[in-house]
Design a protein around this nucleic acid. Sequence first.
DNA 1: GGTACTAGATGGTATAGACAACTTTGGGTC
DNA 2: GACCCAAAGTTGTCTATACCATCTAGTACC
Lengths: 241, 241
Amino acid sequence: MNQRPPQYLKLKHHILRHITNGDWPPLSRVPSENELVSKFGISRMTVNRAMRELADAGMVTRTQGAGTFVAERKAESAMFEVRSIRDEIISRGQKHTVEILIRELVSARPVTARQFALPTGTELYHSRLLHRADDEPLQLEDRFVNPVCAPDYLEIDFYKEIPHQYLMRTAPLQRIEHAIEAEAASKRLARLLAVEPGSPLLTLTRRTWSHDHVASYVRLSYPAGKFRFVGAFNAGDFKTP
Amino acid sequence: MNQRPPQYLKLKHHILRHITNGDWPPLSRVPSENELVSKFGISRMTVNRAMRELADAGMVTRTQGAGTFVAERKAESAMFEVRSIRDEIISRGQKHTVEILIRELVSARPVTARQFALPTGTELYHSRLLHRADDEPLQLEDRFVNPVCAPDYLEIDFYKEIPHQYLMRTAPLQRIEHAIEAEAASKRLARLLAVEPGSPLLTLTRRTWSHDHVASYVRLSYPAGKFRFVGAFNAGDFKTP
DNA sequence: GGTACTAGATGGTATAGACAACTTTGGGTC
DNA sequence: GACCCAAAGTTGTCTATACCATCTAGTACC
């Protein structure tokens, strides 16, 4: 009757599949424990464990008496949140403006293609935006997007919805890879960010996965002193009453 | 019989207290589920839930057939791991050397005292170490330590055990706060790290908590191009079999 | 001394049932 | 319509039991 993958894991994956496929959109209702009990013929304790672990992972939210619902913000749980630069600027009380420098369809160069694990020459969307806070350049965003994961990426009105928001909405995020480093500004970057050539920049490189493909590869560059990445981590629950 | 805090939480906190107090050192054995069942008069399923959640949080490790044991590496679970620079260098296949520049007891200046939430003038340990990889400066480590949390900090043989290891071993880590930024090298930093003044540095600032106090405040500076922080994050389990 | 096996201990999962706490809903009353 | 209240639905917790998989220690054997 019960086979190698435990029942609670099978149920977890069943739920996850519906969520990441998109047929259970954010905020929609997940079947109640008793419904799942009768549908899958497993006990309620087992269903409860599966749902509780999904809630711990932040995929669903549960409310006693109300029900279980697909969570909206999926990937923003880990430290060094993938936060929208627009939200960042606005929450500082500054004015956010964005300038579109590039928006095109390109053939992947070897170095870029390798990031996507795709053959050289594959067509990719490419955008380059400059974000300003109170009219001062804050972030230069150079982004490549896999057309398979976001077919109408070039059609977005970047002035209304920045790429980050679009991708979060469209593609169910599976994995994120970060690298943060410091570098000296090249002449081109210095000109765009209004700093001296050779002055320090803070650069975040990020790859995201969706539907088991690399969905995007982006480089975010900030002038030193104007931005920093922060995060916190708590061990266990660590309250000792 | 059962009161407001659920039984499984009471048990979790009971175990956690023994671990953070230090009377159950790392790798020591935690009572088996059946022992806890008879000791606390609760059912095994409840004990199992408590222990499973502690294992998920990384506080203990469990092995079927063997038992449950206090985990050794407590805080290295979050992304942007708190990894020892020595391990980092050695795992790159380079030679690690460390030079002790400062090792002293100081009265906290206002800006430092504020980081510790302590009054100005409180005595703190201060150390400054320079780590080299294959004789090239890689990291300058400027560290303040709360004597309450690590009384014999100044007595360590930094050549054998770098501060990071000592602190991990001594103080049960409760919380970590990070900030990563880029900066231009001051003359002093440039000289120590063997770079040009004004050239880009990557700087990590970190505070750690232990026993409900700020235990340490450290600034780690790296020459640009020689180091970067990497991390990854997976949503849910996200395998969809 | 070394090796192979076995019995016991331990954690991993699952069940059926129960009660409690909480939310929503619908009906009844004013 | 506005309000109150009871009923139904949902999640949170807990129990007692069961069977299985794995590891350990001790024993018997060579």
